[in-house]
Design a protein around this nucleic acid. Sequence first.
DNA 1: ATTCTAACA
DNA 2: TGTTAGTA
Length: 145
Amino acid sequence: MNPSIKKTEPVFSISTAARLLKISVHTLRMYEREGLIIPYKKKSNQRLYSQADLDRIQCIRDAINQAKISINGIKSIYSLIPCWDIIKCSAEEQKECASFNGAHNPCWTYDHKNVCKERDCRTCEVYTKYSQCGTIKELIKSVSR
DNA sequence: ATTCTAACA
DNA sequence: TGTTAGTA
């Protein structure tokens, strides 16, 4: 409601996020364990969610409830994002990268040894670019053709 | 009062 | 997915 707060600003506690999304805090933490989301962490280790996080999670909920896609299915979809092309890592780095070589999990769930090491996956375009339901569908279409 | 991790009569 | 335990 406050226009001065950016959609990417982590402001919602896990209980507030759960209430707004109508899901349990347990489910919220589970999505994180599965590597579907990367909430902001305070130094106290407590999670904070931005409006962008909420939007992303709602897309995940829609994929599960409407499209009937499983958690593993969503992870597989995310793994298809061409991260190497988006962040343009070198051929050497691609050779060493699991994400470039048929990984079935999102790139941000792996240990990074290349240029990704200096990046914060939460704010990386690879993670944020396909956070909207529409863009995820476009990705699915482009892959299924 | 809230959140966190880990675990399961 | 739920719930409980023991913390911070």
